[in-house]
């Protein structure tokens, strides 16, 4: 187990290194003079000096990377020359919103997917299973940006539910009830996509597990159906589920960004799109870096959980 953890940690460091190189190199994709593009409307001799100092633009590319990474390690992601604010503090303000939406959507998705997948697996091809199968399949084919557009139309505009529509976001600290209300639609929209994935993965694994000999053995001990499902079948079936969850978090991002943007919720997604539209490249770079590392860490966490759930994996 320890050996496994160390190996995974080494790999994690390698991946984060690759991410840092990738994010660093983004600046060099800019056409023409990067300094001029980055500074944009904030182009002045004093800002130019600051930027050169920050990025080491007149030095070799290796030195530039070194300067950049050592700044980042110290928590300095630079200053946006468009809005004159520190990139790090902008990200710090927005990040909790993303985490909250992500957390809520995942709780919702799991809370729906697990019991329904178990229900389906108990009688595969039964009426309930077919119904859920068709529903999940249809939902699979509706992109989140269409779901959110429709939800806003019906729930907020047609039904007139307050605190739920565009630009109704209030921070958790200000009023947590309104905060939760304002995040209900985005969380729900993202939950649908995750639910479909989790439901399908867990259903198929549960069906496979329920055919295992150890389930027959558990039955032969005379313990209840409910207990067999939860105590014996769920855990060995949840490996693929956790794997899917890890991958899914990364896949949710694009949809999550769109949802934030449409509802004007000032999370990282909203900030990122605004930054792209303003050509605020340092801010885009900072967000890309933070989100990438975040996704990798979440994946790592799920990988780790899988090993606790199924002790067979780290032994191999």
């Amino acid at each position: 187990m320890l050996k496994y953890v160390i190996r995974r940690l080494v790999m994690l460091i390698g991946i984060i290194f690759v991410i840092s190189v990738g994010s660093f190199y983004l600046i060099h994709l800019l056409p023409g003079d990067p300094a001029a593009v980055i500074l944009g409307t904030g182009d002045s001799p004093s800002n130019r000096l600051k930027l050169y100092k920050l990025l080491g633009l007149n030095k070799s590319i290796f030195d530039q990377y070194f300067i950049w990474i050592s700044n980042i390690v110290r928590g300095n992601l630079g200053i946006s020359f468009i809005s004159q604010t520190s990139v790090a503090s902008t990200i710090r303000a927005a990040l909790p919103i993303d985490l909250e939406i992500m957390g809520l959507s995942q709780i919702l998705a799991f809370a729906l997917a697990i019991p329904l997948a178990m229900r389906s697996a108990r009688k595969p091809d039964g009426l309930i299973d077919r119904l859920l199968g068709a529903t999940s399949f249809t939902l699979l084919s509706i992109p989140p940006f269409i779901i959110i557009v429709l939800l806003v139309l019906f729930v907020s505009i047609k039904l007139g539910v307050p605190n739920i529509g565009v630009a109704s976001y209030v921070s958790f600290g200000t009023n947590w009830i309104v905060n939760l209300e304002s995040l209900a639609l985005p969380a729900f929209t993202l939950a649908i996509g995750s639910f479909v994935v989790y439901y399908r993965v867990l259903r198929s694994d549960m069906i496979a597990t329920l055919q295992e000999e150890f389930i027959t053995m558990a039955r032969s001990k005379g313990i209840s159906q409910r207990r067999i499902m939860w105590r014996h079948a769920f855990r060995p079936s949840s490996v693929a589920l956790l794997g899917a969850a890890g991958v899914n978090i990364g896949g949710l991002l694009a949809g999550g960004f769109v949802v934030q943007y449409l509802l004007a919720i000032p999370g990282l997604g909203y900030t990122l799109i605004a930054a792209i539209n303003d050509s605020d490249y340092l801010l885009v770079q900072g967000i890309v870096l933070v989100v990438s590392v975040g996704v990798v860490l979440i994946n790592f966490f799920f990988d780790f959980t899988i090993n606790i759930v199924d002790p067979r994996i780290s032994r191999e």
Binding site: E212, E213, F214, T216, M217, A218, R219, S220, K221, G222, I223, S224, H232, R235, P236, V309, D310, P311, R312
Partner: peptide, 22 residues
């Protein structure tokens, strides 16, 4: 189920698959 375990029990063929691995 009332009789399973208490009246009748089974030893399965393959101990590699009949115990819950997790």
């Amino acid at each position: 189920r009332k009789y399973w375990g208490t009246e009748v029990a089974m030893v399965f063929q393959d101990p590699m698959t009949s115990l819950n691995p997790v």
